[in-house]
Simulated assay, not measured.
Amino acid sequence: LLYLDGRSLVDMPIEERKELLGSLIIPSDFVQTSPHAVGAGHALADASRARNLEGIVAKKLGSAYRPGRRSKDWLKIKTVHDADVVIGGWSRGERGRSDTFGSLLVGAYSDEGLRFVGAVGTGFNARSLDDLLSKLRPIEQPERPFAEDPRELKSMYGGKALRDPHWVTPRYVAKVEFRELTTAGRLRAPSFKGLRDDIEAKDVRFEALQASVASSEA
């Protein structure tokens, strides 16, 4: 609730604005106000993770609404998982990254071979882009290493076909963070966190990825 009776409420403490909003809303099947909890942030975050929800928003008592500005008074705490994945290729970058790769094509081993689990397009800086490309170019190969062809999975790329994939020998293991593992076995919103030099690609198993997600949600 930002305005009421022609008066701006943006400087009013969050708890007072919520109280005003509650006095105006008659709960029904169509309209509800969102409940909040004071002092139970860790428990709520754990409950969100257990239900595989996106996360929670923590707002400091007494804080005001600041249009167009980020503030440490309001924090979005996302549910994330981490996993090790095998780099099996990269896709060509566009616009500001046209001279490097757009995303890493990654997978994990199952009984059928290297299973494609997603495209990692965030988490890089200029240095990591250059470093990764210098490692991947020398191990390019004509054959795709994945058991399935990522080019046929258009839904992974906003309905667009994967452009100009470059396949590589599956040598490097990357650590990624992601929001969830979908029912199709794809990583949702994966982000690159670095390379692993203490694990071999052949030891990265899809079953272990599934188990790690399941245990964090238990």
Rank of each mutant, 00 (worst) to 15 (best):
S155C: 05
P13F: 06
V85N: 06
F30I: 03
K135A: 11
T169H: 08
L44F: 14
V10Y: 00
K175Y: 05
L114H: 09
L61A: 12
G62H: 08
F192P: 04
A108I: 09
G55V: 02
R137N: 07
G123Y: 08
I25T: 03
D111E: 15
R163T: 13
K72E: 11
R137C: 02
R49P: 03
D203C: 04
T79S: 12
A201D: 02
K18W: 07
D198A: 05
H81V: 08
A208K: 10
L195V: 06
V106N: 09
S63E: 03
Q141Y: 01
R7A: 10
V204P: 06
G22R: 11
S98I: 14
P170I: 04
L181Q: 09
N125E: 11
S212E: 13
E200Y: 02
T33L: 03
V57L: 01
E112M: 13
W90Y: 15
T100M: 07
K160Y: 14
V106W: 14
S134K: 09
R163A: 15
M156H: 05
W167M: 06
S191M: 11
M12N: 00
H81D: 07
P27V: 01
V120M: 15
S28E: 00
G96V: 06
P67K: 00
R151K: 13
G68K: 01
G118V: 14
R51K: 10
T79P: 05
T182K: 10
P165L: 10
E16G: 02
R205V: 01
S71N: 05
E94F: 08
D73P: 07
R179V: 13
E15Y: 07
D82W: 07
R66Q: 06
K154A: 10
I14P: 02
I87A: 02
L21N: 00
F30W: 06
I26M: 08
S34Y: 03
S110I: 09
